[in-house]
């Protein structure tokens, strides 16, 4: 039952052959594949980390840019508002000045016209006085007639509206 013979040597050789064959057909390809997988996984993890870092950096950059843009926009709005206010004020000033000037000019004109009218009136009053006096003188000096004459004169004065004076 436990006789030892040349089978022992044959089994050693058989085993050696199996080792060589398994090494070629199974061990090497599997180990190679394991290495590849390991590298790939490591690569994937590294890439994922890198991507995450890059994304974070980009996000930070965007946020900074956004903050900068917001500040700038506010600045622009402030500036525009300020300018508008200044413009408005300036135009108000100009308009006020213009109005003042116009008022002033108008007043001057009014005074001038008035003076002119008074001058004219004075002249006409004198002429009328002379005309009235002439009429009185040419007629008989009668108290009643005089009074009627003056009344008529004044009525005529009202009716005819001698001159176009505004006052």
């Amino acid at each position: 039952m436990i006789d030892i013979n040349a089978t022992l040597i044959a089994q050693m050789l058989n085993f050696l052959v199996l080792v060589v064959l398994l090494r070629i057909f199974a061990y090497k390809p599997i180990v190679k594949m394991l290495k590849e997988r390991e590298e790939r996984i490591a690569g994937s993890i590294k890439k994922a980390d890198d991507d995450a870092a890059a994304a974070e950096a980009t996000l930070k950059q965007y946020q900074e840019q956004l903050a900068g843009a917001r500040v700038k926009a506010q600045e622009i709005i402030d500036k525009a508002e300020k300018r508008t206010r200044e413009d408005h004020e300036a135009s108000m000033q100009t308009t006020k000045a213009e109005i003042d000037q116009m008022k002033h000019a108008a007043q001057l004109e009014i005074q001038r016209e008035r003076a002119l009218a008074v001058e004219k009136l004075k002249g006409q009053v004198a002429a009328l006085s002379i005309a009235a006096a002439e009429k009185i003188v040419s007629k008989n000096i009668d108290a009643a007639e005089n009074e009627a004459l003056i009344k008529e004169f004044i009525d005529q004065l009202d009716k005819d509206k001698i001159g176009d004076l505004p006052c």
Binding site: T7, I9, A10, Q11, M12
Partner: peptide
Amino acid sequence: SPTNDLNTTLGLALF
């Protein structure tokens, strides 16, 4: 089983 023969097991052990 090939391993029911001492030749196999002793062969492997000696190897």
